[in-house]
């Protein structure tokens, strides 16, 4: 909707999802009104759906476990974990219970648990409240991972995650909450967004002439804004034209919609805002290398955060997080 911020779109989506099915429940810490969650994503829900919203103790593993029990009994369950860092407290229930239960009983046991969590730095919250933990959950059989973006309506993405029958984690970049929900269309003088494969497919951001792409950047929703700034810089300083692909689904990653653009670009760059090492960027790069071997003009470039904790002070935080300059440098060096 026009003028909406991303957190408002998310909140609207949650309202829709609880409204469409009284069996859909939401659990989390401090999610009740008037507070409505640490980032206000659950505002209004407990007032409108008092029987469907449960405020919990500080027990991440426990509440994901309760969600799993409810899901096993047939409910759709959304869990808000206050910070992505705290997902690690719920690792057992996510990996050992939710994901494994889908298939370890010899037949498919649908488990509709979706854990939402704010992730990423840029807010000065320091090392235990700023992490991007996505990579720790990549490749877990029967666990879907998705990331919020300004281009995808969270309602559609969350509805899909809730309906498919596999548990899922939905990562929400904290900076994105206060950004405009853009959807499709013109973003600024340079960029326009499209969802050519529908509301769940990757968003494609172009400078208007996708056929003349020099550089293709693939990044999750939380990094898209920094990728756009890098793209503008690459055009101004190096006259390189950039296209950006923002998948909603991080894992399992579907490479098909990006192969065509990746095969034509002079440089393909995968960006993630967490440290490298068993991460999403390397996994995506490997899929592209495998699918496009012989067609790529150079190896896929990966850009990741520095291998460090995320410091609290803003000037230090910026030395670790991925910024536009790091993307520009990586792409430019690859072309030379």
């Amino acid at each position: 909707m026009a003028g909406e911020r991303v957190v408002e779109a998310l909140n609207r989506g949650l309202h829709d999802l609880l409204g469409r099915d009284p069996g859909t429940l939401l659990l989390g810490e401090d999610v009740l009104d008037p507070y409505g969650g640490a980032f206000r994503a659950t505002k209004g829900l407990s007032t409108r759906f008092p029987d469907q919203v449960l405020s919990t103790p500080i027990s991440e593993n426990g509440i994901v476990g309760v969600a799993n029990g409810l899901a096993l009994a047939g409910h759709r369950v959304l869990v808000e974990v206050m910070f992505g860092d705290f997902l690690l407290l719920a690792f057992d229930q996510i990996v050992n219970f939710a994901a494994k239960s889908v298939s370890m009983y010899g037949r498919r046991v649908p488990l509709r648990t979706v854990v939402r969590c704010p992730v990423g730095g840029g807010r000065g919250y320091g090392p235990t409240h700023s992490q991007n933990p996505q990579k720790h959950l990549i490749g877990v059989p029967h666990l879907a991972l998705a990331e919020m973006s300004a281009f995808h309506d969270p309602r559609h993405v969350l509805a899909d995650l809730l309906d498919r029958g596999d548990p899922a984690v939905f990562f929400e970049d904290k900076i994105l909450y206060t950004q405009p929900a853009r959807g499709e269309g013109r973003i600024d003088q340079l960029w326009a967004a499209e969802l050519p494969a529908g509301p769940l497919g990757p968003a494609v951001l172009t400078m208007g002439r996708p056929e003349s792409t020099d550089c293709l950047i693939i990044c999750p929703g939380g990094v898209a804004d920094r990728a756009m700034r890098a793209g503008a810089e690459l055009l101004l300083r190096h006259e390189l034209e950039t296209q950006i692909i923002v998948p909603s689904r991080l894992w399992p990653f579907d490479a098909k919609p990006v192969l065509d653009a990746a095969g034509r670009a002079a440089v393909v760059c995968v960006v993630e805002d967490g440290p490298a090492g068993g991460g999403w960027g390397a996994a995506v790069a490997h899929e592209l290398h495998t699918a496009l071997w012989g067609q790529l003009s150079r190896p896929v470039v990966t850009v990741a955060a520095e291998p460090e904790v995320i410091p609290a002070a803003p000037h230090l935080e910026e030395t670790v997080r991925v910024g536009p300059a790091k993307i520009v440098t990586a792409v430019w060096e690859a072309t030379r």
Binding site: G65, L72, A73
Partner: peptide, 13 residues
């Protein structure tokens, strides 16, 4: 692991 799951099932029941 089963006890939080049990709480969830019990709430549904």
């Amino acid at each position: 692991e089963s006890l939080p799951v049990g709480v969830g099932i019990a709430l549904s029941l």
